[in-house]
Design a binder for these strands. Structure first.
Lengths: 133, 133
DNA sequence: CGGTATCCGAACCGATACTG
DNA sequence: CAGTATCGGTTCGGATACCG
């Protein structure tokens, strides 16, 4: 009984559904979490690096999604006036926070799909890990 | 696990993208998180209670989504052979874990949209809180 | 290199009416 | 009460070709 009340906050609190409404538009897009986590993994990434990292995404979809994330203030786009052109995407503060907030979800998913192993780069051999088309 | 690796986990780890692939089909559906969190809030809910709780969902969409969640092993459906019929939905272990894993995400979203307040029932007046159509 | 433009099918999901 | 059946609109996102 004492332990339960101790854990109340983390375990069985009542959750307000309202904030989820706001999350859904972001989280429910097929590529957003992948993009946020990828950029976070490398700190900064260029367009074609993201294309490679997110195997299977089309340039249109990537472009569209990046615009949404930028408009949401989650990522930042830095354009270098060079030839050939260079553009780098980085996480802004909110994006970093989002990425942290997603970690438990990833761990939950990893635990589910592979018995009980975590899935970190050591096992996963990032970059070029085992996402397959 | 050592203290350092624990810090790594929470702060600046490289995240494997693979598990996210598996999450997306679940998390990206418009209603799944709402349903999981709702059931968790009440421990068990009936079909029409869910209909009321999730304002705006259609019976077809709710039915479809519940089937997916049941097939994923996240929720359990208990049918009472009564007249009128009664069916109760509860979270299974994986669903409970998912709900916990989603809490940081909700807190992130709540913080974003409302300055820095948390959004728990006390503020939010569950049930019948401020989700509006 | 870092995107757009266009086209298009598929998936999602809401409204409504009906059933055991 | 707890759904199913049907229909149809919108949005998502993939393929491909092209542009500055």
């Amino acid at each position: 009984m004492t332990k339960e009340s101790e854990n109340m906050d983390k375990e069985c609190q009542q959750l307000c559904l309202c904030p989820i409404q706001g999350i859904i538009d972001i989280v429910s897009k097929k590529w957003t979490l992948l993009i946020i986590c990828s950029i976070g993994n490398y700190e900064k990434l260029r367009f074609n690096e993201l294309m490679k990292e997110l195997k299977g995404i089309s340039p249109k979809t990537l472009s569209d999604t990046l615009k949404v994330l930028e408009a949401e203030g989650l990522i930042e786009k830095e354009i270098f006036k060079e030839i050939p052109p260079r553009v780098e995407y980085t996480l802004k503060e909110d994006g970093i926070e989002l990425r942290k907030a997603v970690i438990p979800l990833i761990e939950w998913a990893a635990k589910r799909e592979s018995g009980s192993e975590k899935c970190y780069p050591e096992q996963c051999k990032l970059p070029g890990h085992h996402i397959q088309p």
